[in-house]
Amino acid sequence: MIKVLHPGFYSTIQDLGRRDYQHLGVPLSGAMDQHALKSANAILGNDENCAVLEITMLGPNLEFCCDTVITISGADLQPKLNGIKIRLFSATNVKTGDVLSFGRLSKGFRAYLAVSKGFQTEDILNSKSMYKGLTAASRLQKGDLIKLIPTNHINNKYAYVKFDGNIDVDIIVVNKGPEFEHLNNKQINQLFGQEFTISKENNRMAYQLDELITNSLYEIITSLVMPGTIQLTPLGKLIILMRDCQTTGGYPRILQLSEYSISVLAQKKVGDKIIFKLEEYQL
């Protein structure tokens, strides 16, 4: 077990999400940065779908009630074990009574804490990903006890992975969305000829961008969307759907992020800049 002494700003349990229930209107959910989730699980030898703790901006204080092995991937929130700094993307042995804390956010936006064999929290519709209205808890609260399987320690020297990070990347790779062909040249130039700024409206459902695009597109009949879909609103705002997005939407879908770029965007915070790069399909 892990005891939550302080939950941090916004911490949730996440895995790869719920794929089987989208036809019933259930969002996919899952770790925002799935690249970091998979890396963390790989370092511990876990299955890639093992549940981890997604930590946003400000880290929690956690007390371990059993021995285990942990790793932290994604953003650098300067994690410390009993006050001593620990390395990211590296397996760390943890003993009963140890306390994990975090410092100031220095890089990225979301960190992932994985434990050996994954967190053993409730499974709802084949996933442990927290989502308000589906899972009993929608985020970590002070005093929560998170179940895990106690594990013997491992030899650290085999467990450091040189990690090719996605944190410093500012290029977001996109493909054309279903309504892309309705855009005119001016709009296309606006999309690919400037930097965009992450708006303060950013969360697990969607990221909005500050810069507006001239919009002449009509709304569409409510149709299917997915994480990574970029919608253009009537006011010219760009909305990039993220992991907790609804399954359907009525705004034109002009672009679609690559899977990797969704993870890149998940590490961006308000004020960060991104550039779109259009990738044409290989014929």
Partner: peptide, 17 residues
């Protein structure tokens, strides 16, 4: 028939309900 990202294909009927 339209590609929608690298993992999906969208099939569309005329824009009527």
């Amino acid at each position: 028939y339209k590609p929608f990202g690298k993992y999906s294909i969208l099939i569309e009927w005329p824009q009527v309900i």
